[in-house]
């Protein structure tokens, strides 16, 4: 479950050239250093099961056949360089972008066959979409709750608690359009949490969030995972993922390079070094001599 093999053939029939990290698109053996898991699985039904998701935008293949199991109760990090296909994969897994190939199951519910059922189980923070920002922060989070058909009193109680937890109470009545980037991120997170989902999918949740708020959010997420929830975060801050997550998947060029527990994937090295090794693309540091001549 925790080991991923690259597909023999991508849905688009492409093959990737060998990478400096030792990865080749047609490889069928597990990555060195990643061993099959030992012991019984804690939850038989994964919180999110992705099978062969693929998406092409015009001539560009954004996601080239990704399969992944996110165990229930895990804190799962998805890392990858810019343009790796993280956002596209998560959009397809959460029902926002229809895949060209593949399926996604949330706690066994097919996202694309039974979308209304699947969205009930998920809370989604999407990167790069707008919010209804002419509402006040309080109104926006309540709106997200009411759209889910929640009870009015429950919504208003939860909104107050969420805003307090995310340090937004003082700005609850301010229009979201006047929020800073970090505050906007936090209010979007609150909108994703309001209905107490079983699975949280957070795309770049810590971008432009200040360190204190980020620590608060981490606490909230840790407690959420402790009580049985599942969190998927995408990020390119390796330190954060290594500290916060128990599982990690490395995505690059629209493909899955490695997946498993953080210990398995990093194989003794730091996650960042392992990531660079897997993804490749580190340029030699020779050259740029002129930069030292001032």
């Amino acid at each position: 479950m925790l080991v991923t093999r690259s597909l023999r053939k991508s849905p688009f029939g492409t093959t990737l050239p060998a990478r400096p990290g030792g990865y080749a698109g047609t490889m069928t053996e597990p990555q060195p250093g990643i061993r099959p898991p030992a012991g019984p699985r804690p939850h038989p039904v994964p919180a999110l099961a992705i099978r062969g998701l693929a998406k092409r935008f015009g001539g560009k293949i954004a996601v080239d056949g990704i399969s992944l199991d996110v165990p229930a109760g895990s804190f799962y990090g998805i890392v990858g360089p810019n343009g790796a296909g993280k956002t596209t994969t998560l959009s397809m897994a959460t029902g926002l972008l229809r895949p060209d190939f593949g399926t996604a199951l949330v706690h066994g519910v097919d996202v694309w066959a039974r979308p209304l059922e699947a969205t009930k189980l998920m809370g989604i923070l999407t990167d790069g979409v707008r919010l209804f920002d002419r509402l006040t922060g309080e109104q926006l989070v309540s709106y997200a709750g009411l759209l889910r058909g929640m009870d009015k009193d429950v919504v208003s109680a939860r909104v107050a608690e969420l805003l307090a937890a995310l340090d937004l109470s003082a700005d609850a009545g301010t229009l979201v359009v006047d929020y800073s980037a970090g505050m906007t991120k936090k209010i979007a997170l609150a909108s994703a949490l309001i209905h107490a989902p079983r699975l949280l999918v957070l795309d770049e949740p810590f971008e432009s969030v200040d360190p204190v708020s980020a620590a608060n959010i981490r606490d909230i997420l840790d407690r959420y995972v402790e009580s049985g929830g599942t969190v998927i975060v995408s990020s390119h801050v390796m330190d954060l993922v290594q500290r916060m997550c128990d599982h990690v998947a490395v995505v690059a060029g629209g493909r899955l390079l490695a997946a498993g527990t953080v210990e398995e994937v990093r194989a003794g090295a730091s996650l960042e070094d392992r990531f660079v090794q897997l993804v490749g693309g580190r340029s030699r540091t020779e050259g740029l001599e002129w930069l030292r001549t001032f």
């Binding site: 006040t136 309080e138 109104q139 309540s142 709106y143 009411l146 058909g149 208003s156 609850a172 229009l175």
Partner: peptide
């Protein structure tokens, strides 16, 4: 722009608390 505290739900407080109403 000044900071404004909670409590002004506007039309959300008036209309029915259903998805359609919201």
């Amino acid at each position: 722009g000044g900071r404004k505290r909670a409590g002004r739900m506007g039309l959300f407080g008036v209309l029915p608390a259903t998805p359609t109403g919201a």
